[in-house]
């Protein structure tokens, strides 16, 4: 760089290029505008905000001490039900998600219209919340664990299918090409070429989803779809705060145990 150019630049140093600066400014401005508009129009009574800390403390006081005696009677079985719902729901969800995952992956399925169909189904499954599926299945099969399990399974399709298809698309094409060149049928290309490459990603996303589903299975009871959420709902409706506290403690224990288990298994198999 010659000196003239350097001297022009001397006082001109800026952190970003002009276009980049404008784009960032627009984003920041939009965020500020959205926040300001939300604060101004959201229907919140200011006194309630000031009152909130006191109310929360009051609630916590009413919860103490947790009603330990209620655990074996009313909570334990419901908690196990929630775990069953999460596990069976995950297995069913994964089983249904795999075909869509293969169909959505552009390198596995060479027909764009099939890719898009599969993607549409995956996006729809992901966009409909587990609770909405639960409302639907409670209406269809009546209240109980079956509705909850199916809700978990259907919502999981979207998550598992999308991540699985992404894992498939990230596989290296070399081994696939070699198998095709050797004249292997498509099914064998999948089992010998794609599958070994995506196994670690597959297990890790199944475990991840199971961990999420444990948390989700706990809420399902609120809409009558089985599990510990129903015990929570009962205690809440009867204002038995000590029992509510016990349910919450039990949930905390299960969720943390699930997270620890997932971390342990992931280390073991990956």
């Amino acid at each position: 760089m010659n000196n003239a150019a350097a001297s022009v630049m001397e006082r001109e140093w800026r952190r970003y290029e002009p276009g980049e600066r404008i784009a960032r400014f627009v984003v920041y401005a939009a965020i500020v505008a959205a926040v300001v508009m939300s604060i101004r129009t959201v229907e919140v009574i200011p006194e309630f905000i000031l009152d909130a800390p006191e109310q929360v403390v009051d609630l916590l006081k009413r919860m103490w001490p947790p009603d330990v005696a209620s655990y074996p009677k009313e909570i334990h079985a419901a908690l196990l039900d929630s775990l069953h719902i999460a596990t069976v729901g995950t297995v069913l969800g994964v089983a249904m998600a795999l075909p869509f995952g293969f169909l959505a992956a552009r390198n596995v399925t060479p027909w764009p219209w099939l890719n898009w169909m599969a993607r549409l189904i995956l996006i729809s499954a992901r966009s409909v919340n587990t609770l909405v599926f639960a409302l639907f299945f409670v209406a269809v099969f009546g209240p109980g664990a079956l509705a909850g399990t199916l809700a978990i399974a259907f919502h999981s399709i979207g998550f598992v299918g999308r991540l699985f298809s992404e894992a498939l698309e990230n596989t290296s094409p070399g081994p696939i090409e070699a198998l095709r060149a050797a004249g292997a049928p498509s099914a064998s290309v999948i089992t010998y070429g794609y599958w070994p490459q995506v196994v670690p990603a597959f297990w890790s996303l199944v475990l991840f989803r199971w961990d999420i589903n444990v948390r989700e299975s706990i809420v399902l009871g609120l809409v009558g779809a089985g599990g510990v959420g129903m015990a929570l709902d009962n205690a809440l409706n009867l204002f038995q705060w000590n029992r509510v506290a016990m349910v919450l403690l039990a949930i905390l224990g299960v969720v943390i145990a699930a997270e620890v288990a997932v971390t342990y298994i992931r280390k073991k198999i990956i």
């Binding site: 706990i218 959420g229 809440l236 919450l248 949930i251 905390l252 969720v255």
Partner: peptide
């Protein structure tokens, strides 16, 4: 650990 809906209740 708690689902947002549980915290919401």
């Amino acid at each position: 650990s708690f689902h947002p809906v549980i915290i919401a209740i």
